[in-house]
């Protein structure tokens, strides 16, 4: 599929900083996909978005949006993209409609077309009935939704969502994730930055993992988890602390179980396929009269990938 965005060896070195904030990042985004840039705070996600949205001038490299360079043709790039910044970049004393009207003006919209788009986007973000209220009377989640609406009003080909769920309640977060899915279903291409691996896993066709200004991995969820091997982790909670070592030794001999170790009331197993091994694992425990009070199965995830690649947890 054709690329709508091609990032080529992008570098941002701030004056006085020891290391570049973004150091040679390259990736491409296909038309119609959701691409997540996943990384911890300070990894370089927002700086990357800043350069792609022509807010920051790159120190090196370039990015091409639908054939236009952010370095040499920023005005054309700005017309193609929509930006939803991490901050609530709205005017609190204006109503949602007034904010949207202003941002519509800034994208050259006006008249009945703008009014129609404002009605439509308020409907999309579920705030039609609060559209005439001042933004400073909104909850955090509602502000986030209007912040997103302002970036989508001009119906951009490519939208940058920079950590749009930071600091909001679970219900508002869910609303935003569903909104992103709906927009993508309508054909919108999305570059989504986050430090929540669950969001990246749920939304994205492909994920780039960024750390210390460098892109350290890129691919689909499957491709990335393969980096740490296709192995599941089974965690058994047992009633008796003293039975742990004995059970771990017995379970280590079960087919498909690669390793087993005990710790207090827990026995941890690494298996090729948890679903295949689990019945025999339970049978071994029952045969020894050891009561299992809880079972937790973990498939490989991006947290494990990040840990594998950096030696640190994603939220360190």
């Amino acid at each position: 599929m054709a690329l709508i965005l091609e990032v080529q060896d992008l570098v941002k070195q701030y004056p006085g900083a020891a290391e570049p904030a973004v150091n040679g990042v390259s990736f491409g985004i296909r038309r119609g996909e959701v691409f997540s840039l996943l990384g911890p705070n300070g990894a370089g996600k927002t700086t990357t978005i800043g350069m792609l949205s022509c807010l920051l001038k790159p120190t090196g490299g370039d990015a091409i949006v639908d054939g236009h360079s952010v370095r040499t043709d920023p005005e054309a790039v700005k017309r193609l993209i929509g930006i939803v910044p991490q901050d609530i970049a709205l005017y609190p004393s204006l109503s949602a409609r007034e904010n949207l009207r202003f941002w519509g003006w800034m994208y050259g919209l006006g008249g009945k077309d703008l009014a129609r788009r404002i009605d439509a986007i308020l409907e999309t973000v579920g705030l039609t009935d609060r559209g005439n209220d001042r933004v400073d009377s909104y909850s955090g989640g509602m502000k986030r939704r209007i912040n997103i609406a302002a970036g989508l009003l001009h119906e951009p080909k490519l939208v940058f969502l920079d950590e749009p769920t930071v600091g909001i309640d679970p219900q508002s977060r869910r609303n935003i994730l569903e909104m992103v899915k709906a927009l993508n279903a309508q054909g919108m291409t999305v570059l989504y930055t986050t430090h929540y691996m669950e969001e990246a896993q749920e939304l994205s066709q492909r994920i780039g993992i960024i750390d210390n200004g460098k892109l350290i991995a890129l691919g689909t969820l499957d491709e990335l988890t393969r980096l740490v091997g296709r192995q599941d982790e089974i965690e058994l909670k047992i009633a008796s602390e003293h039975a742990g070592p004995e059970l771990a030794e017995a379970l280590g001999k079960v087919k498909g179980v690669r390793s087993a170790r005990s710790e207090d009331h827990t026995v941890r197993l690494v298996a090729d396929d948890a679903n295949a091994s689990l019945p025999e694992v339970i049978g071994v425990a029952n045969a020894r009269g050891i009561k299992v009070i809880g079972i937790d199965v973990r498939e490989p995830n991006l947290e494990a990938v990040f840990l594998h690649l950096t030696g640190r947890a994603l939220r360190d």
Partner: peptide, 13 residues
Amino acid sequence: ETGTLGRLVSAPI
């Protein structure tokens, strides 16, 4: 500081 200036700069103005 609030980010509205950045949003303006990112618009085609």
